[in-house]
């Protein structure tokens, strides 16, 4: 049902570099779980609306006023690497 290829594809979508020894076990785990999930196919849900979340809330807005917030310094205090007031990352384009 799920191939090693599928596992590598989903890992790539998830931005996880899987080591070779992880692929086989994850394939078996995912296969078991997806087989279990297939029991939902016993239900006809063609006429049922989806529930994204349970509260009858829509478009919760607040006045567009400036409020106190973290300073640039505070926000950058947790940075792994920073430079010139910004988060620094490895090269994006060669």
């Amino acid at each position: 049902m799920i191939t090693d290829q599928d596992v590598r594809y989903v890992a790539a979508l998830s931005r996880i570099h899987l080591r070779e020894e992880e692929v086989d076990r994850l394939r078996k785990n995912l296969e078991d779980i997806l087989r279990y999930i297939e029991k939902l196919n016993q239900l006809d849900v063609s006429a049922v609306e989806p529930t994204n979340h349970v509260l009858p809330l829509k478009n919760v807005l607040r006045p567009d006023d400036a409020r106190p917030s973290l300073t640039q310094e505070e926000a950058l205090s947790i940075a792994v690497e920073k430079s010139q007031g910004a988060f620094k990352v490895p090269k994006v384009i060669e």
Binding site: S14, I16, H17, L18, L30, V89
Partner: peptide, 25 residues
Amino acid sequence: TPIIDMFEETRDQGFGEEAKRRIML
């Protein structure tokens, strides 16, 4: 590329087995 390699290695080493399983599922 350096940045994608960084994403993928960080997430491979940073997440445990169950986290990887759930993210992938």
